[in-house]
Amino acid sequence: MSKVLVLYYSSYGHIETMAEAVAEGARSTGATVDIKRIPETVPQDVAEAAHFKLDQNAPVAAIAELADYDAIIVGTPTRFGRIASQTAAFLDQAGGLWMRGALVGKVGGAFTSTGTQHGGQEVTLFSVITNLLHFGMVIVGLPYSFAGQMTLDEVVGGSPYGATTIAGTQGQRQPSAIDLDGARHQGELVAQTANKLFG
Results as ranks from 00 to 15, higher is better:
Pro43Asp: 14
Lys36Arg: 05
Glu65Tyr: 01
His51Glu: 10
Ala61Leu: 09
Thr41Ser: 04
Gln44His: 11
Val60Pro: 02
Asp68Gln: 05
Ile35Leu: 01
Glu40Asn: 01
Gln44Asn: 11
His51Cys: 04
Thr32Ala: 07
Val46Trp: 04
Leu66Ile: 13
Thr32Gln: 09
Leu54Ala: 09
Ala31Val: 11
Ala64Asn: 15
Lys53Glu: 12
Ala31Glu: 12
Thr29Ile: 06
Ser28Tyr: 07
Gln56Asp: 09
Val60Arg: 00
Val60Trp: 01
Ala49Leu: 08
Ala67Arg: 08
Arg37Thr: 14
Ala47His: 01
Ile35Thr: 15
Ala58Glu: 12
Ile35Gln: 04
Ile63Cys: 12
His51Pro: 12
Ala47Ile: 05
Ala62Tyr: 11
Ala64Phe: 15
Thr41Lys: 02
Asp68Phe: 06
Asp55Lys: 00
Val46Thr: 15
Ile38His: 05
Gly30Thr: 11
Ala64Val: 15
Ala61Asp: 15
Thr41Tyr: 00
Thr41Cys: 00
Thr29Asn: 13
Asp68Gly: 11
Thr32Ser: 12
Ala31Cys: 14
Gln56Tyr: 05
Ala62Glu: 15
Ile38Tyr: 10
Gln56Arg: 01
Asp34Glu: 13
Asp68Trp: 02
Ala62Met: 11
Ala47Gly: 03
Ala62Leu: 07
Ala58Phe: 00
Lys53Leu: 13
Pro39His: 02
Pro39Trp: 01
Ser28Trp: 08
Thr41Val: 06
Ala49Pro: 07
Ile35Asp: 08
Lys36His: 06
Asn57Thr: 12
Leu54Ile: 10
Asp45Ser: 10
Glu40Lys: 04
Ala58Tyr: 00
Lys53Trp: 04
Asp68Ile: 04
Lys36Cys: 04
Asp55Val: 13
Val46Glu: 09
Asp34His: 05
Ala61Lys: 00
Ala62Gln: 07
Glu40Arg: 01
Gln56Thr: 08
Gln56Ala: 07
Ala62Thr: 12
Gly30His: 08
Ala47Val: 10
Val33Gln: 08
Val46Cys: 05
Ala31Leu: 15
Asp45Leu: 07
Ala47Asn: 01
Thr32Lys: 09
Val33Asp: 13
Val33Phe: 10
Ala67Ser: 11
Arg27Asn: 12
Val42Met: 10
Pro59Ala: 04
Ala50Cys: 10
Ala47Phe: 02
Val46Ser: 06
Ala31Trp: 03
Ala47Trp: 06
Ala67Met: 13
Arg37Pro: 08
Asp55Trp: 02
Phe52Val: 14
Lys36Met: 07
Phe52Arg: 02
Glu65Phe: 04
Lys53Asp: 11
Thr32Cys: 09
Asn57Trp: 04
Arg37Gln: 08
Lys36Leu: 14
Ser28Lys: 01
Glu48Lys: 00
Ile63Tyr: 06
Gln56Pro: 05
Lys53Met: 13
Arg27Ala: 14
Val42Gly: 10
Thr41Leu: 00
Glu48Trp: 00
Gln56Gly: 09
Ala58Ser: 06
Lys36Pro: 11
Ile63Asn: 10
Ile63Ser: 15
Leu54Tyr: 02
Val42Arg: 01
Ala58Val: 04
Ser28Cys: 06
Glu48Leu: 04
Thr29Trp: 01
Val46Asn: 08
Pro43Asn: 15
Val60Leu: 00
